[in-house]
């Protein structure tokens, strides 16, 4: 693996972090830092924005311009930040509860606008920070503190939802495949327009131990066994894909980006 000077990106005085042993969020953050390093982005030009939950703490640990907002609203704050200063590279970090339950409306509208945001959603299938309540991605039948008899709601397929809403780039990876995850993040960050990466990340504390995945290793094995690369998934019938995690680039296109369209408008009106 390519050597990356992690310490220059980390706020080492803010560490140890709050994430539990076996949590995958550190792996996602590491893959993000590696992708940023490869792109050569300067720390001063990066803004990392998050909402509430375990994922929401990620920006506090990295030496960028960092903004930890209210629950579900990271994308809306990031929209203002990006529009007021389009030269900022804006990365939004969110979770399945933060990003697609309370923040779902902002997610689909940001995708629709195709604003140049880079959204990374840490999907751990549960509300981790509040102690394991059912989330919009908790699989049907799985247990949660607010689904003690098994979840009786169907989960979202987040990546497909975002791809349908608009945007230029949608991908899904897991922390079991960190090299691939880094590549997906690199493509997402490079892409102009709205890009979205769903990163599957285990939560042994709040999810695994309630769902017969007793420990981080069992959760990693589960991610490995459930992952199917997109190329292979295309040859599988729908019943065979039940419960699987399809990984890879799900959407990659070049619709005109929001700030570009707006810049043309202001130029036409003489306001630029």
């Amino acid at each position: 693996m390519r050597a990356v000077p992690y310490e220059s990106y980390l706020r080492t005085r803010r560490i140890p972090h709050i994430w539990c042993p076996g949590c995958g969020h550190g792996i996602v953050l590491k893959a993000m830092v590696r992708a940023i390093d490869q792109l050569g982005w300067k720390k001063d030009e990066i803004a990392m924005v998050s909402g509430i939950g375990c994922s929401g703490r990620a920006p506090g640990y990295v030496d960028f311009n960092t903004l930890h907002t209210t629950h579900g609203r990271a994308i809306a704050f990031a929209t203002g930040l990006k529009l007021a200063n389009p030269s900022l590279k804006v990365i939004v970090v969110t979770g399945d509860g933060d990003g697609i339950a309370i923040g779902g409306n902002h997610m689909i509208h940001a995708a629709r606008r195709n604003l140049d945001l880079n959204v990374v959603l840490f999907n751990n299938f549960i509300y981790g920070m509040t102690g394991g309540q059912v989330s919009p991605t908790t699989p049907l039948g799985c247990s949660a503190t607010t689904a003690p008899f098994g979840n009786y709601e169907h989960p979202f397929n987040i990546a497909e939802l975002v791809a349908a809403a608009g945007g230029n780039f949608v991908a899904r990876g897991t922390v079991y495949q960190p090299v691939e995850l880094e590549k997906l993040l690199l493509k997402a960050f490079e892409k102009k327009g709205f890009s979205f990466v769903e990163a599957m990340s285990p939560c042994p504390t709040a999810y695994g131990r309630r769902n017969k995945l007793k420990g981080p290793v069992a959760m990693m094995v589960d991610l490995k066994e459930r992952s199917v690369p997109l190329a292979r998934a295309k040859n599988l019938a729908e019943p065979e894909l039940e419960g699987k995690i399809v990984t890879g680039v799900l959407l990659d296109r070049d619709k005109e980006e929001y700030t570009e369209i707006y810049r043309k408008l202001t130029a036409r009106l003489g306001g630029a």
Binding site: V49, L67, F77, A78, T79, G80, A84
Partner: peptide, 8 residues
């Protein structure tokens, strides 16, 4: 939220 982001 966007207003606050823009102000920042």
């Amino acid at each position: 939220s966007a207003v606050i982001g823009a102000a920042i």
